[in-house]
């Protein structure tokens, strides 16, 4: 049964790729969306869904799915390239910060979690050995190892916190152009127009209106139908 499922999946994958190659992006999108419903979730799938939307000129939906893929695999060169078509990566003038943030941006939350578990476990083991050394002579270089693993632990904790912050920030992408108001409703003052594929974070909800702060610093209340949360309602991107 398992092999039959695998075979069917392989067959349908080929079919969606065939659709895409022949320019039938809507059909390909239907196939890929079906995989999501079946519980499949990986960066490649979100890349392909984003590509389908891109070819259909739905740039907001396209970026939304690239972002989902990016959250799962931030070092994927294809996803990075496609996102770079929408966003220019700003680099810090400080070379150390630039290098560190560059490294952190290429390691996923999942990988940071593994690194955190690994370094924490090793630190505990080193600490235990260090304790035992006080009652029984064991020849083991605990101090230099503790220092090295400690640096790895701090790095992984920092990376984990940064990514966790991104998850907690309720990252949103505008799937269509809309007007931001000063309050939750059309009756409030118009503040600005927000373009499709702009990104920001959800601050507060009030009925069908969301208070969004764009990453440029501006913000306002927008109709929730024009915005989508990157990490909500996505089977593959459950928080825990």
């Amino acid at each position: 049964m398992f092999y039959i499922s695998l075979f069917l999946l392989f067959f349908s994958t080929s079919k969606s790729e065939e659709y895409y190659k022949n320019g039938l992006y809507g059909e390909a999108l239907k196939e890929y969306t079906q995989y999501l419903k079946e519980g499949i979730s990986n960066p490649e799938l979100y890349l392909n869904i984003g590509n389908c939307y891109y070819r259909m000129d739905k740039f907001g939906e396209s970026l939304l799915n690239y972002r989902r893929g990016w959250f799962l695999s931030p070092n994927d060169p294809n996803i990075r390239h496609n996102i770079s078509l929408f966003r220019e990566q700003k680099e810090s003038p400080n070379p150390f910060i630039s290098f560190t943030s560059g490294v952190i941006d290429r390691i996923s939350l999942r990988d940071f979690s593994y690194l955190l578990i690994f370094s924490f476990t090793i630190l505990i083991i080193i600490g235990s050995i260090r304790m035992i050394q006080s009652v029984r002579p064991i020849r083991f270089p605990t101090t230099p190892l503790f220092f090295i693993i400690g640096i790895i632990f701090i790095f992984s904790l920092s990376g984990f916190s940064i990514w966790q912050g991104r998850v907690q920030s309720n990252w949103v992408v505008f799937t269509e152009s809309t007007i931001a108001h000063s309050g939750p409703g059309d009756q409030f003052k118009d503040l600005m127009t927000v373009d499709e594929a702009e990104e920001g974070s959800l601050i507060r909800e009030d009925g069908g209106w969301w208070l969004i702060q764009l990453y440029s610093g501006e913000g306002g209340w927008v109709d929730s139908s024009s915005v989508s949360l990157v990490l909500k309602g996505t089977e593959g991107l459950r928080r825990y």
Binding site: Y35, I40, S41, L47, N51, F71, N78, I117
Partner: peptide, 28 residues
């Protein structure tokens, strides 16, 4: 410049964060 081409999709499920992550931290 064009977007990167599609990639073959496997049937794997890649979670955002490892399951039982808090438990793994507790075990040590």
């Amino acid at each position: 410049e064009d977007i990167a081409y599609i990639k073959p999709v496997g049937n794997k499920f890649v979670p955002l964060i490892p399951r039982f992550f808090p438990l793994y931290l507790f075990l040590p």
